[in-house]
Design a protein around this nucleic acid. Structure first.
Lengths: 364, 364
DNA sequence: TCTGGGTCTGATAACGTTCTCAACAGATCG
DNA sequence: CGATCTGTTGAGAACGTTATCAGACCCAGA
């Protein structure tokens, strides 16, 4: 109809401007726009006409100021380039979006000080809640304090020892056990495990006493290793520390680790890799060493990566329901955001074994 | 020393509280905390002592209210599960973090209405700037209006026809040409191209007149296809519409498309796939059809995925500097955020060919 | 002593919303 | 007819920060 009033800067029209044009009070305009309180049909019409005329856009900052809620959730991931977090993020954003929340994203890059900075920033921005994948060495103090202050926090994938917070992840021990059992049932006795844990955990992972595994923090690796040992024990197969390879996180690390394993006097006839990057490393090592998989050495990976069924051989994997993990984390957080009083829970989903062609009976 | 004063709710102490405890005015406390204006050493000490005693945390919402700046950048990605965006996101967050900006993330899932909703949300949250990967069908109107209002916007990977905004991406035409030339030089004449564009672009991509390609919106595919045709033309090889396969985005689509290509009366001796998911599909098709690569059919992919050198054969790819792309986008945005006046620019990085083993001379 | 120019300070006004409260009209009820 | 209720309205406070401005103080130079 008319062009926009030149006096008012587009994109920064306020409720007051709208009210003035509509010929009602600020309070009424706000009620009509914000859809609360009670407003007559006539006022509502007047206001919405004025609003669209002026191109009014509500200012969430001001709204947050008074409602003390930002409808924003902070998400801190450990390693943004890890496909696991990516899929989880997909689940998280989809669910949160559905509930009207936006996501403030930070990448801790597994570094303590970046995690701390991110945490601080989120608090200063007054996020309504937090989904955190704690870094390997995480700041229990700070997170714990936030929870204590009543900030809803959900831990994803990893947990922090001694921290009473909701957590969402898979049944790692079960998963470790299933993978190992699968290999045992096919006759394997010399089964190696390649983990992504840092070197500082080597001792605990190699210890004779499985209880040592509990000391491995952020312990998806430790817990999976514990399942592996349970399976071994149940089958009466002795534990060989040399078969647990603490590789580091990168593919190259796993490649080297695999080559070392293959050079052992009694090399393993099967290998379990604890994440998809490591699986790729093992595959690379097989190629380099000229080892045929599965004929000479079987392989089970974790995470059903997009390439898993396309490589040769197609890889048998423990598939984690990663998107669902993210969704569940988001849902749990929203429940708390809605003020539901809930006990602290550890939500656990099962990983499932997907049979492909990287496992065969041991040679000979 | 002392425990925290019980009267003041932890985590919501304000400048006023700090000022009271420090025995100075709100203004002085704010100056000391916010590090602006001039404050005596003594006041500064008093204030910071009081602040840490009370566990004061600045409230960015209130600060934004008055400074009219949120130090937040909105990032809208087209498909959060695409590895391309993931790596880009890594570059973006790292750079923005270094400049003190946080990232508000939204996933448009290539859907127009989700993109619009995300855009609206970002505006309402008063982000300082925007990095957008426009969806296939994007809302030029809205973005254009925002830019017009002075909101800094940088387009990533894709562009929007007719929109005057900074954009960052690779030299797609050059990349398409290089990949095709590489195959031509090895003697291939029947070279197929598998794109991820939607079916609605089939006509333009198949048209005899290469200028039709311009109509393919959000046109990384179109531009790469145009480079492909340039190379063909320069080598005097006739263009065969059947060799351009408009697959769809998923791996299965590419797999089917590849099988169709292989069933052509004169099947291609080499295939170029325009993203990594499609490459995986082609590989899958080779396996299903029992075609040996590269002996019977060569393959060049786009994007140096983590698995590219591990599959067999290791894939020759056009590698995009994806993290850098994200970094450049972030840097460009920060320049504008700092108020630098700049012409609209199209920042283009080169993709580089990584030779591996998926290309051989054509059979026979 | 007076003046000028710094440094430092505190009261108070923004910022754009939502919330609180009192007031008013009209309808309903006794 | 008065009392009570319901729906609607507007004035003004509130949120927690930064910006503005005027004043207090101190010291050097005239």
């Amino acid at each position: 109809m008319t062009t926009r009033s030149p006096g008012i800067p587009i994109g920064d029209t306020t409720v007051a401007d709208v009210a003035r044009l509509a010929g009602v009070s600020v309070a009424t305009a706000a009620r009509a726009l914000g859809n609360y309180g009670s407003v007559s049909a006539r006022s509502r019409e007047l206001v919405s006409a004025a609003a669209s005329e002026l191109g009014y856009r509500p200012n969430m900052v001001a709204r947050s100021m008074i409602t003390k809620t930002t409808r924003t959730v902070g998400v801190i991931v450990g390693d943004i380039e890890n496909h696991f977090f990516l899929s989880a993020l997909r689940g998280i954003t989809d669910r949160l979006d559905a509930f009207g929340y936006d996501v403030l994203l930070a990448n801790s890059a597994e570094e303590l000080d970046r995690e701390q900075r991110a945490l601080q920033a989120m608090v200063e921005r007054r996020v309504d809640g937090l989904i955190v994948t704690p870094a390997q060495v995480s700041d229990r103090e700070l997170i714990s304090e936030l929870i204590h202050q009543g900030l809803p926090v959900v831990l994803l994938d990893r947990r922090i020892r001694g921290l009473r917070a909701d957590s969402v992840g898979i049944r790692n021990r079960e998963a470790g056990r299933i993978a190992t059992d699968y290999l045992l049932h096919r006759g394997h006795r010399r089964i190696a495990l390649i983990t992504g844990a840092g070197a500082e955990h080597r001792e605990a992972l190699h210890a004779e006493d499985p209880r040592e595994l509990k000391t491995v923090r952020a312990s998806t690796s430790g817990t999976r290793a514990s399942g592996y040992r349970q399976a071994l024990a149940a089958a009466g197969v002795p534990f060989v520390p040399d078969y647990i390879s603490v590789a580091g996180f990168r593919r190259e690390d796993a490649c080297l680790a695999t080559l070392e394993l293959l050079n052992l006097p009694a090399p393993p006839t099967a290998i379990v890799t604890l994440d998809s990057g490591l699986t790729l490393g093992a595959l690379q090592a097989f190629r380099q060493a000229g080892i045929r998989c599965p004929e000479e050495c079987s392989l089970i990976g974790f995470d059903d990566a997009e390439w898993a069924e396309v490589v040769s051989p197609p890889i048998t994997v423990m598939s984690q329901p990663v998107v669902q993990l993210g969704e569940r984390a988001a849902e749990r957080l929203v429940q708390r955001l809605n003020g539901e009083v809930l006990d602290v829970a550890a939500i656990r989903l099962s990983a499932t074994l997907i049979e492909r062609s990287s496992v065969a009976p041991p040679p000979g």
